[in-house]
């Protein structure tokens, strides 16, 4: 308390001291201010830039553990020509490459039976994510997968004998194999890859064919 009263007592002498303190360190003040302005400007812009630009989909996708990035590893596979009839794909289920002229409808279609890779690959080119599972996956798991697909544009789902695990997800150039429908990576993959991964920017999922069976229908059909 004695100390807090101190300044009051010392007020008068302090007023007298003011004229004495005329020489302020303007150089120091100016330098400190300039540095502060520069620092805050840089930090401010960095913060703004990071807020403005959300991270690119390719980075979000590449970060998923267990993802196979064929776009980086095998870019030569990912050709986009139309070829009719049965085609051979190095990865099963297919993750891209030449395909039939007809695309498999992918407006959130849940196919009850296997479909032709030649048409599904065209859907991948248009930006769809193809969710596949091994026949015999427990019904509850299939139901959980269906919830993520049915009615959701740029997705399609089917059982495929050649699925490399219980469940796998395919986008153009990418594949993710998971054991369970409750795996959180499924949603990360779907949100990063849908529409984004398709090389034919702006292409539709509607008006595709809805045939099932692994043999592609003849080109004039559909």
């Amino acid at each position: 308390m004695a100390q807090s009263r101190g300044p009051k007592i010392g007020r008068r002498p302090k007023k007298k001291a003011v004229p004495v303190a005329a020489a302020r360190p303007w150089g120091v003040i100016a330098t400190v201010a300039a540095v502060a302005v520069l620092a805050v400007t840089i930090i401010g812009y960095a913060a703004f830039a990071s807020w403005r630009g959300t991270r690119p989909w390719g980075d979000r996708l590449a970060e998923i553990s267990g993802l196979t990035d064929y776009k980086a590893q095998k870019p030569a596979w990912l050709t986009q020509d139309h070829k009719e009839g049965p085609l051979d794909y190095a990865v099963k289920p297919s993750v891209g490459g030449d395909h039939n002229g007809a695309w498999q409808n992918c407006t959130g279609d849940v196919y009850p039976a296997p479909i032709a890779a030649e048409n599904a690959t065209h859907s991948l080119e248009h930006g769809a994510v193809w969710v596949t599972y091994r026949p015999g996956l427990p019904a509850e798991q299939v139901r959980q997968l269906e919830e993520r697909v049915r009615g959701k544009d740029y997705t399609l789902m089917s059982p495929q004998e050649n699925t490399p695990g219980p469940i796998s997800l395919q986008a153009w150039g990418y594949q993710l194999v998971v054991d369970s429908a409750s795996d959180e990576r499924i949603d990360t993959f779907l949100s990063a890859a849908r529409i984004n991964a398709g090389p034919e920017v702006g292409a539709p999922c509607s008006r595709g064919i809805t045939d099932t069976g692994t043999a592609p229908p003849p080109s004039a059909g559909g």
Binding site: V32, A33, A36, V37, V40, I42, G44, Y45, A49, R52
Partner: peptide, 13 residues
């Protein structure tokens, strides 16, 4: 100075 710096930084951003 700090307030000014924030304002300048945001304006630039």
């Amino acid at each position: 100075g700090a307030a000014l710096a924030v304002a300048v930084g945001l304006s630039i951003g």
